[in-house]
């Protein structure tokens, strides 16, 4: 029975000791420890969340980069295609203009040639005309040296004239 009879002394000292222990540990040990643990847990939590967010951000950036790259490639192709088209166009235009210019020049040359020929022909005609006139003058001079022949021609011409 002695074993289960609490001693007043031990009850008293236990109460006092436990109260002091609870006070000191509560104020100087449990509070800072629990706060530190909580804080660390929170920081780990936020760090994990941030890592997750960073991973997402990274994935997003990679996707974006890829999309940009793809777009850039498409654009480059487009630009190249356009350039090729423009090149072809320029070449064809240049050919065309060269052609027309050639034609034009040939036409002009022909016209010039024709003109020159016409001028030359007119000159030749004039010379032929003056030559033939000279020849005719000389022939006539020769034929009408004799007076009688002149008279005969006048007579003939008079005969032909009918009044």
């Amino acid at each position: 029975m002695e074993l289960v009879t609490p001693d007043i002394g031990l009850v008293f000292w236990t109460t006092v000791c436990f109260a002091i222990l609870l006070f000191i540990l509560g104020k100087f040990a449990w509070k800072p420890i629990l706060e530190a643990v909580k804080e660390r847990e929170n920081s780990i939590e936020t760090a994990l969340q941030r890592a997750e967010a960073a991973k997402d951000e990274m994935a997003r950036l990679t996707n974006e980069n890829e999309a940009l790259l793809k777009q850039a490639r498409v654009e480059r192709d487009l630009i190249l295609q356009e350039a090729r088209k423009v090149k072809d166009q320029i070449i064809s235009e240049a050919k065309e203009s060269a052609n027309t210019e050639g034609h034009r020049m040939i036409e002009m040359a022909r016209l010039e040639i024709n003109n020159q020929r016409a001028i030359a022909m007119a000159d030749v005609k004039n010379q032929v005309a003056s030559l033939s006139l000279e020849i005719a003058e000389k022939i006539l001079n020769k034929q009408f040296e004799d007076q009688k022949k002149q008279d005969e021609l006048v007579a003939q011409l008079l005969k032909e004239v009918k009044l």
Partner: peptide
């Protein structure tokens, strides 16, 4: 109790 105080106050300061 002295052991508890020493241990936990030192641990608390470590924290």
């Amino acid at each position: 109790i002295a052991v508890l105080l020493i241990v936990f106050l030192s641990v608390s300061s470590t924290y």
